[in-house]
Write a protein that binds this DNA or RNA. Structure first.
Lengths: 105, 105
DNA sequence: ATAATATATCGTATATTTACGATAAGCGAT
DNA sequence: ATCGCTTATCGTAAATATACGATATATTAT
C-alpha cells in the first residue's frame, strides 16, 4: 500500500479484509484444516503435511498467528500450534454478518 | 508465487483462497456493500464513494470481476456494475462450509 | 467532424507476499 | 560443554499488489 488513504475505510471492513488476507493462501487454509483435525500439531508435523519448505511453512504459521486464528505454545524445543477457537468463531460470525447484509443471501 | 508447488493443494481450497484474496482489501468489501445497496452503479459513482483515484477503483472493480463476484455491463459510454448474486451466494456457502468443518463452529 | 464524457488500460513507483536456503537460538540428552 | 533436534528469523530473489497520473478508446452530444 504505497499511500495510506486506507485510513478512511470502515474499521470492521479493514479487520475483515485483514482476516480475508490471512485466508488468501491455500497453504494457510490447509493448515487450519490440519490443526482442526489434530487438535494440536507441532511445526514439524505441519511441515510434513504441506508441500513447502520448513521456513515457508513457518511464515504461514506466523501469518495465521498474526490475525489470531491460531495459537502457538512453546513446548521445550518445539512449538505446538492449535486453532484459536474463539477467533475462528468470531471470524465465522464476521463473514456470516457480511453475507447477511447482501440482499441475495 | 515464485514457484508453483501450489498445484498440490486441494482445488476447492485454492478457489476459496482466491476469493478470500479478492475480499482482502477494504475498498473491495466497500464496493460490494455499495453495489448491494444501489443494486447497480456506474464506475463513476463508485469512484465518488471510495477515497481512491479513478484508475485504482477501476482496478479493484476488475479484481472483483475476475473472481466473478460482480458483473459489469457496458451501457453506452459507461459501465454499470452489479453484484453477481449467484456467485455471492456460492461464496457465502463456501465460507459456511469451511467454518462448519471446524469442530468449534 | 469535433468536443465532452466515461472508463479501461498503460506506465511506473513502491510495498508486500511468497518462496527458499542458511543461520541463529533454544532445549534436551549425552 | 557439546551434540542433535526443532523452529524462528535473516537474507534474498522473484512475483504480486496497490496506488497514481497519463493516455487510449468508445460513446454521446453539439
Amino acid at each position: 500500500m504505497p499511500l495510506a488513504k486506507t485510513d478512511t475505510f470502515d474499521n470492521s471492513d479493514k479487520q475483515l479484509a485483514d482476516i480475508a488476507k490471512a485466508l488468501s493462501h491455500p497453504a494457510r487454509i490447509n493448515i487450519l484444516r490440519i490443526l482442526n483435525e489434530r487438535n494440536s500439531c507441532i511445526t514439524g508435523e505441519v511441515v510434513d503435511l504441506i508441500p513447502l519448505s520448513q521456513s515457508t511453512v513457518s511464515q504461514h504459521l506466523k501469518e495465521l498467528k498474526r490475525v489470531n486464528l491460531i495459537k502457538g505454545e512453546i513446548e521445550g524445543p518445539r512449538t505446538s500450534y492449535c486453532l484459536n477457537e474463539a477467533m475462528v468463531e468470531k471470524t465465522k460470525s464476521a463473514f456470516t454478518k457480511l453475507f447477511s447484509t447482501f440482499k441475495c443471501c
